[in-house]
């Protein structure tokens, strides 16, 4: 049978970020192209989030396993910098999932992220913006650490890139 782009999208919607298991790779925005050739070969293009992120190779393998399990026989998953990722590519759905997971979503920015947007990030627990950036480096490359002066808790943010 011939695969359609919609069917492949539906399969990939179930592949989750290994470190943030509520966020699908589609909502994360790392799947940049799905193309099905006339010979029924499925081509998936992905782009890295942070260049040194050890989860990228894992994500690529998860995509391959998902396609294999669904019975896609001929496929190719390629990593490319052609359409570079940034945090604006995280979907509205993905942002909601991050918030519910206790991880403050990255602010959407215009053109180039100014690091001022790291200040006064809304606390994912109490929504207060009376918060301060403690350190731009956290438990994974994509997270910064903040402190909420209102509910007096440290919280993590998916940092803007």
């Amino acid at each position: 049978m011939m695969w359609t782009k919609e069917e492949i999208l539906a399969l990939l919607a179930k592949v989750m970020d290994p470190e943030i298991p509520v966020l699908s790779l589609l909502d994360l925005g790392v799947i940049t192209d799905i193309n099905i050739t006339q010979e029924n070969q499925v081509m998936v293009r992905m782009t890295p989030t942070f260049s040194g992120c050890p989860a990228m190779e894992y994500m690529r393998r998860s995509v391959e396993e998902t396609l294999t399990e669904a019975g896609v026989q001929d496929f190719k998953v390629q990593m490319s910098f052609d359409k570079p990722w940034n945090t604006n590519k995280i979907t509205a759905n993905g942002r909601k999932a991050l918030q519910a997971f206790g991880l403050a979503p990255p602010p959407v920015y215009q053109v180039v992220p100014d690091l001022d947007i790291l200040e006064h990030i809304a606390c994912p627990y109490c929504n207060s913006t009376n918060t301060i950036l403690r350190t731009p480096f956290g438990p994974t490359l994509c997270r910064a650490m903040h402190y909420c002066n209102n509910c007096r808790q440290m919280f993590e943010q998916f940092k803007p890139l």
């Binding site: 040194g52 480096f137 956290g138 490359l141």
Partner: peptide
């Protein structure tokens, strides 16, 4: 925080070299 900062920057730089 500095332990994590240097470790994170190390990881980034290895990613850049890759």
């Amino acid at each position: 925080e500095e332990d994590i900062a240097f470790s994170s920057m190390a990881q980034d730089k290895l990613g850049h070299s890759l």
